[in-house]
Nucleic acid binder design. Sequence first.
DNA 1: CGCCATTTTGAGTAACTTCAAACTATGTGG
DNA 2: CCACATAGTTTGAAGTTACTCAAAATGGCG
Lengths: 246, 246
Amino acid sequence: MAAYLIRKLEHFAVLSDDDKRALQLAASYRIRHVAAREDVIREGDKPRHVNLMLEGYACRSKSLEDGRRQIVAFFIPGDICDACMFMLKQMDHSIGALSAVKLAEIPGEMFLDMARNSPVIAAALAWNALVEEAIAREWTLNVGQRSAYERMAHLLCEFFVRLQAVGLASGGGCELPMTQAELADALGLSTVHVNRTLQELRANHLITLRGKTLVIHDLPALQEAGLFSPTYLHLERGGHQSAVVV
Amino acid sequence: MAAYLIRKLEHFAVLSDDDKRALQLAASYRIRHVAAREDVIREGDKPRHVNLMLEGYACRSKSLEDGRRQIVAFFIPGDICDACMFMLKQMDHSIGALSAVKLAEIPGEMFLDMARNSPVIAAALAWNALVEEAIAREWTLNVGQRSAYERMAHLLCEFFVRLQAVGLASGGGCELPMTQAELADALGLSTVHVNRTLQELRANHLITLRGKTLVIHDLPALQEAGLFSPTYLHLERGGHQSAVVV
DNA sequence: CGCCATTTTGAGTAACTTCAAACTATGTGG
DNA sequence: CCACATAGTTTGAAGTTACTCAAAATGGCG
């Protein structure tokens, strides 16, 4: 149930069998299915529990009154969409399903108890939160400084590497569930320009993208094109393992 | 010593005298002064402790190999630059002083103990981290979707409101410590365009900016110009007060 | 007073947007 | 299983925002 989450956390921490059981239990307490294009939770809503991605793809987005929308994060299986956010009065963003999504709704107290009962889980969850913040910073850098071409290459690299980290990318390819319009919202570009940028990546023999299937022909070259370096994902172990969660 | 931090945390939590003493103690354990334009810590360094801003202004930034730089956050007195980051092997960004800065270096274990010993502090720190994440998301929205004019207006509103929250903005103005080049790096614009955008805001009688002094003549109008709504700063109490920190 | 950093101005340009339409998949009901 | 509707992708052409380069003006500071 929580296999992807466990796989991800193991990049940082050594989980005991008890830890894994606790995670499994939390991940199976309450399951929710959300159809593609439906919202998991909307800006303004009171967050009530922690949403853990079990299957499918989702995104976090913020909108301006006039409809302009920025996707600020993609969620893949194993991601925790809103750890600790149940502390807040209201959501400052929405979470929307990009494909059919299966998620675990973990009650806030259960989530906290899990961390309180195992220092290793607490540390792993804190690490997870730190990585998410690092990704958010990288996205700001992406949108603020990289050109359209670089931005797209970077996004594809990141998505691929993250899927790889939970075992969802086989060889040189992965599923790319979002439409070009959604890519545009994530990159701060127009759909038209996203389309042309993808064509450029194809013309340079870096990728193939047909339907929802992405094939990366030359990962090193794509990384270079996107000025991508995976260090900010902090996938290598080596840190201090102790933490507190509120 | 930790007056600004305490003032900020009190927006969310009701701190006991013991809580305040604990914060004061941590904030006075080790003090460091950093001159304007010097780095507090650099990308690639191993983070060793928690940096708490006591006085002055700083920023978090990320750079690309070719020198392009994105400022992803501004720090003002009371801000914690890198809570929990001591867990990571290396920094994925730099922290630089925008003005002369005085900060408290809090050892990781001391920081964790503070949270472990007081559930209220733990909750307040978690809330603080959530707000920082919300600000990071808003910045991505800013850079990705708003026009130069809107972006600048939004940045000025945010900076002013945050200073207000710790008592550093009197009436309709505040100090604006960064140069136009730094504003440009924060907004993903060129210096030239930042200059022209500021002139436009002045021409519309929204602000006066001379030297390092910003005066906001019409805050509601500036907010409207920047599509700014302070909800994402989560300054109003009303949440659940319990947390875990790794 | 003079130096260096910063701000300001001007002119030409590039990157990306907008609008509009055509084309291609994908899925639905008959 | 086909016909149709709809969502998504692709193309072309024109427009706009913001960038680059370069130089002049201003200001802070020793």
